[in-house]
Structure formats: structure tokens, C-alpha cells
Design a protein around this nucleic acid. Structure first.
Lengths: 197, 197
DNA sequence: GGTCCTAACAAACAGTTGTTATAATGCCTG
DNA sequence: CAGGCATTATAACAACTGTTTGTTAGGACC
């Protein structure tokens, strides 16, 4: 009663909970099998409803995909921004960003890791929506690299792709047990800064 | 006549040509849309035959996928081995390998680039077959990095993942017009060697 | 108490999927 | 010319796809 009322006052309906549950189920399956191999029925089953019922919450599979992707961007953006807040040294900022990036990816949240999946093979209409979301996240790293004290002619766009490539590729090989995600992130930045020789 | 005869003597049938054509069509579509979104009918149409007829050449879609993947590994392995042949300096060997890697990926061959697709979301039985193939290619780079003059406690496995991550991730963003694939490959190795500061 | 909104079920839609069995073609050899 | 084999076409299969529709139960609100 009172709970319902409070929820209502905050503009939340019961459907917002179920919506979140659907997104969680979807993100989980998307990570496990990919977008194509995950059917609406699979997602619905994991969330405890039937496929048709999902269309009350999401008007299409594409919209559901975009919603999970956007949630992933929201979570990882927040984490990175918090991590660099107050840090002054440009290299330290990049390091902390990479660490937060990795910690978020492998911290158990099923959403952010979706941002690291290759989307170049998805359907064009979906792809363009996802690209826009990810670009807005990548911009964070672009700014961090822009602030580094580098030679004038250094290709900073290529540097960003260099680092994000290493970091994101980790989603295809990382398994718990060895180096922690934070160590891996810091290591990649350190190698980029200091080199090996 | 004589051509046919010679082909026959070498154990080649007409089907070997068609098999290659099917693999080429498959690789092209796999790159464009991914494995799941590419149907056997799509591949057959591009090769000028009907879906059912493909099963004379490949006993399943999975086998066709594995065949294209393996062909990709064969091509890029050959290119890298040729590139480092005779080169002595360890860093130069790694550089030449990275350059050959990139040149092969973006050199118009539709097979090798398949090796850079994330396969962690494919069906388990297929995945294990693909992993085996790619591992045998990655080993080339493992050896190259093993030969670098590095500190004793340096994690060389992580270095390989660092470099291959950057290189392979390029398949998700590279477009002709800017730096050439060769320049990108050499740049990533140079950054790893010398750092930025 | 009647009305509307929320949320879900149940069933079906038309189209696509990988795959198979069978039949037809066409070329090479004898 | 005949026989056989290599290669393709044809047609169908069961299962699955995203989505739509009609319906229903339960609260909330006037």
C-alpha cells in the first residue's frame, strides 16, 4: 500500500521493476549467446513470463537490445567519471579510467560488457543506434588522451583505439584467477606510457 | 580436356572449385553479417546454387564455418611466416609480423579477418573447434614475444593479448583512407616498445 | 459500482532456419 | 552409344523466429 503509493509518487510503476528484470535477463543471455542466438522466448522464460508479454514493456527486440546497451553505457560511464574525479595528473587519470573500465566490465554487471562486443556485424538499423551510444562513451577516453603531454604530431585517435582495443579485447579472453581486471587495465596503460625497452 | 585430365591426375575434381567458391561466398557473407545472420540459402545464392546442393560439399553449416576459418588461418599464417623469414632482430620480427598480419586482414581476402571476430558467443561445439584453430595461430605471436629481450618478470602472455587485442580490434573500426594497415601495425608495436613519454 | 489502466496469458501469424531424401542432369569412360 | 558417377535441383520436414491479436484478471480512481 504505502510502498505502492510511494512508488507511484516517484513515477515508478510495477512495470519498471519488471522492465528492469527483463533487461537483466536479456543482458545475461546476450552476453552468453549473442543477440541473434537469443530469442525473445529465451529472455521471457528467464524473466518468468511469456514472449508476447514482453511487448508491453518493449516494442521490439531491437528496442530491448538498445535499452540494455544504453544501460551498460550508463553504468560504465558513471564508474569511470567517479574514478577520475579529483585526479589531476593526466596519466594517472587515464590509469584510473582504465582500471574503472575493467572493474566495471568484470564486476558482475551484465550490461557494460555488451559495449565491448563487436557490433559491426549487426543489422544496419540496429548498428547505427549502438554506434551512437558507444561513441558517446569512447569520447571519455578521447578526452583523457587529449590531455596527455604528447608530441604534437602524435595520432591521438589511433592511441585511443590502441588502448581501447587492448582493454575491450580482454572480454574475449579474461577468466578469473590470474591478474585482476584492475591490474590488467593498469598494466596496459603503463606499457603504453613507458614501453618495454 | 588436358586441363581436366591434369586436374584429375592431381586428385582434383570439379567439386574442389565449387567448394572453394562456396567458401569464398560464405566468408564474404560471414564477414558482412556474421555466422548466425547468414543462412545457407544466402551462401548458396551467392555461389549460384541451391541450399540443398551445398550439402554435397559440406555436411553441415558448422563444417562450412570451420573450413572458412581454417582457410583464414592458413592464409595469414603463411603471410606472417614469410614476413619474418630471414629477419633476425626480435623487435623487427615482431614489427614485420604485425605488418603482415594487418596487410593480410585488410588485403581483400575475406577469410583471415574471420579469425579476428569474437567467437565467445558462438555455440559451444563450434566454439571449441574455432578456438583450437586460432590458438595455433596465436602461438606464432607468442613465440615472437618470447624472443624479445624483456625483464624476467614481465608477463609475456599479457603482452601478447595486449598487442593482438589492439591489432584485432582494428577490424571493428578500420576504414581505408587514413593510415594504412601496415602503418597501424607498425605503430602499435612501436608504442609497445618505446612508450609515449 | 462502473470505468479505465496495467500487466500478463494464450494462441496464432507468416516467414525463415538447417537439413534431408529423392530425383534429375551432365560429363567422362569404356 | 551405354553406364556410371559427380554434381545439382526439387521439394519437403520440423523447429523456430519476431510479432500481433484477443482476452483476462486485478487494482486504482471518480
Amino acid at each position: 500500500m504505502t510502498e505502492k503509493t510511494r512508488a507511484r509518487e516517484e513515477g515508478l510503476h510495477r512495470s519498471d521493476n519488471r522492465r528492469q528484470e527483463l533487461m537483466a535477463a536479456a543482458a545475461h543471455l546476450f552476453n552468453q549467446r549473442g543477440y541473434d542466438a537469443t530469442s525473445m522466448r529465451d529472455i521471457a522464460r528467464e524473466a518468468g513470463m511469456l514472449a508476447g508479454s514482453m511487448y508491453y514493456h518493449f516494442s521490439s527486440k531491437e528496442d530491448l537490445i538498445v535499452a540494455t546497451y544504453e544501460e551498460g553505457k550508463r553504468l560504465i560511464s558513471t564508474a569511470v567519471l567517479e574514478a577520475i574525479d579529483g585526479v589531476e595528473d593526466p596519466w594517472e587519470r587515464l590509469t584510473q579510467a582504465a582500471v574503472a573500465h575493467m572493474n566495471t566490465l568484470f564486476g558482475g554487471n551484465n550490461f557494460s560488457i555488451l559495449l565491448c562486443a563487436d557490433i559491426s556485424r549487426t543489422a544496419p538499423t540496429l548498428r547505427s543506434r549502438l554506434i551512437e551510444i558507444r561513441d558517446s562513451y569512447d569520447k571519455l577516453f578521447m578526452d583523457l588522451i587529449e590531455d596527455l603531454p604528447l608530441a604534437e604530431d602524435m595520432d591521438k585517435g589511433l592511441l585511443r583505439l590502441n588502448l581501447l582495443g587492448s582493454l575491450n579485447w580482454s572480454t574475449s579472453w579474461y577468466r578469473p584467477g590470474g591478474q585482476t581486471p584492475a591490474q590488467i587495465g593498469a598494466f596496459f596503460v603503463k606499457v603504453m606510457r613507458d614501453g618495454l625497452s
